[in-house]
């Protein structure tokens, strides 16, 4: 049983790392701030959640588990809020989101 949990934990950590790295690459590759936000969203939601869940599985039934859960809930509450506030500000500040190569030429 505990071996299965360990396996699952390693799997979750692996996917978490994968998504975080892909998100970071997206952060560098994407053409404008909004599309970069989507890339950063991968890191901040799925990547973070997978890593915290992976840690939760190895923590066992201790207070560490509760604290990890609180950290997870906080990240899931605060990250989209910060992202939304940033996107809202960027819409007013930039006004012209990137809409594909052809429009960017203008």
């Amino acid at each position: 049983m505990s071996q299965a949990l360990d396996m699952l934990s390693v799997l979750l950590l692996f996917f978490g790392v994968l998504f975080i790295l892909v998100g970071s690459i997206g952060l560098l590759r994407m053409p404008d701030v909004f599309t970069r936000m989507h890339a950063a969203g991968i890191t901040d939601t799925i990547g973070a959640a997978a890593i915290i869940l992976g840690l939760m599985l190895v923590a066992g039934w201790t207070i560490v588990l509760i604290k990890l859960l609180i950290v997870l809930l906080f990240l899931m509450l605060l990250n989209p809020t910060a992202c939304h506030a940033l996107a809202r500000a960027a819409v007013h500040g930039i006004r012209s989101p990137w809409q594909g190569e052809s429009e960017q030429q203008q």
Binding site: H38, G41, I46, H84
Partner: peptide, 15 residues
């Protein structure tokens, strides 16, 4: 709803 939209990668609520 807005935060669910932002949480889902690929969509961001702007306003």
């Amino acid at each position: 709803f807005a935060n669910s939209i932002t949480l889902t990668p690929g969509t961001i609520s702007l306003d």
